[in-house]
Simulated scan of single mutants.
Amino acid sequence: MTEPLRRPRRSSGRTTLADVARDAGVSPITVSRALRGERSVDPVLVQRVRAAADALGYVPDPAARALASQRSSQVLVLVPLLSNTLFVDLLEAVHRTLFPAGYRPLIGVTHYDAAEEELLLNTYLPHRPAGLLVTGFDRSETARQLIAHSGVPCVHLMETSRAEGVHCVGFSQVDAGAAITRHLLDRGRRRIAFCAAQLDPRTLQRGDGYRRCLREAGLYDPALELLSPERSSISLGARLFEDMLRRMPDIDAIFFCNDDIAQGGLLAANRLQVAVPQRIAVAGFNDLAGSDQMVPPLTTVRTPRGEVGRAGAAMLLGLMEGEPVQSSCVTLGYELVVRGST
């Protein structure tokens, strides 16, 4: 049987969306919608389109798609680190929200570096992504202007602001830092140290909450703070615990700014035979994996990073689709998780 004649493809030899449409017997717009995963397309047509695309070896051209529709399917997501499971949880929720709606997250890692964030914005904003998700509000004036003048809908994650025109989803880091400190006071602790790493804006806000709470109680002592610019890690937490105990042997509690350094502190306490919580209470922040398995289990603040990712992506979807957003600032709160270490 003689094969039907097909129109010649573009000079590059690349299979086009029109080729797939012709083989599947549908319109090019139906092919586009089917391959984007839009739920409005009949599943039978989706199967036919995908079979034709596979047979022809079709690879979508994102640039051509954006040019043809005057709309990109990419959403730029900027996070500080991928080594911190907090941001991995956030990204997972963002992906699960955006992908079924036909949008593809494009991840940029800033490493808490303002110049690196500027470079990422200068690299990707000219491609006109459909939307932008950024972490917090601490960035250079250049980066702020790039975002403001891009015309790209933007939602800020992990922190909140009531500033006009700002869209954000998060919780008060200051209030959460005060809450865990207040818990230690309620447990009868009076010499409460604060050990912090990385010193990013959200860590410093937790420190602000710690100071506010102790000042209100008339117990604040700046000598009880140990701040390290090093990246947060279990090994650093062990060192901070030992350093603080050596400098201030009369402390009766330590609030660590993140669970990984708190876990390191607990391991150091066990190695040094320092009784927790009898001699020193230990508290962390973020309720990372393994904190409930420490000896003793770690008291911490559970932060809603998955829900922040989901709600932030949902807010951005509304902005990208031109739908009204009920509230430009969504505060999700936090949960104090009391375990055996306090």
Rank of each mutant, 00 (worst) to 15 (best):
H167D: 06
H167V: 10
V169Y: 06
G170H: 11
G170R: 10
Q173S: 12
D175H: 11
G177L: 06
A178G: 14
A178P: 04
A179F: 04
A179L: 12
I180M: 01
T181N: 07
R182I: 02
R182G: 09
H183W: 00
L184Y: 07
L185I: 07
L185T: 04
L185R: 09
D186Q: 15
G188E: 12
R190W: 06
R191F: 13
R191G: 11
F194V: 03
F194G: 04
C195P: 10
C195L: 13
P201T: 14
P201F: 11
T203L: 10
T203V: 15
Q205W: 08
R206F: 12
G207R: 14
R211G: 11
C213R: 13
L214I: 12
L214G: 11
E216T: 13
L219M: 14
Y220F: 15
Y220V: 05
A223Y: 03
L227S: 08
E230R: 10
R231H: 14
R231V: 15
S233K: 01
S233T: 10
A238H: 07
R239I: 03
F241P: 03
E242P: 02
E242C: 05
E242F: 00
E242I: 02
D243K: 07
M244Q: 14
L245Q: 12
R247K: 12
M248V: 13
D250E: 15
D250M: 10
D250C: 09
A253C: 05
F255D: 04
D260M: 09
D260K: 01
Q263P: 01
G265Q: 09
G265P: 08
L267P: 00
L267E: 06
N270T: 04
R271K: 12
R271A: 14
R271D: 09
P277I: 03
Q278M: 08
V282W: 02
V282L: 12
F285M: 03
G290T: 01
Q293L: 11
Q293E: 07
M294G: 00
V295G: 00
P296L: 02
P296C: 04
P296G: 05
P296I: 00
P297R: 00
L298P: 00
T299Q: 03
T300A: 04
V301L: 13
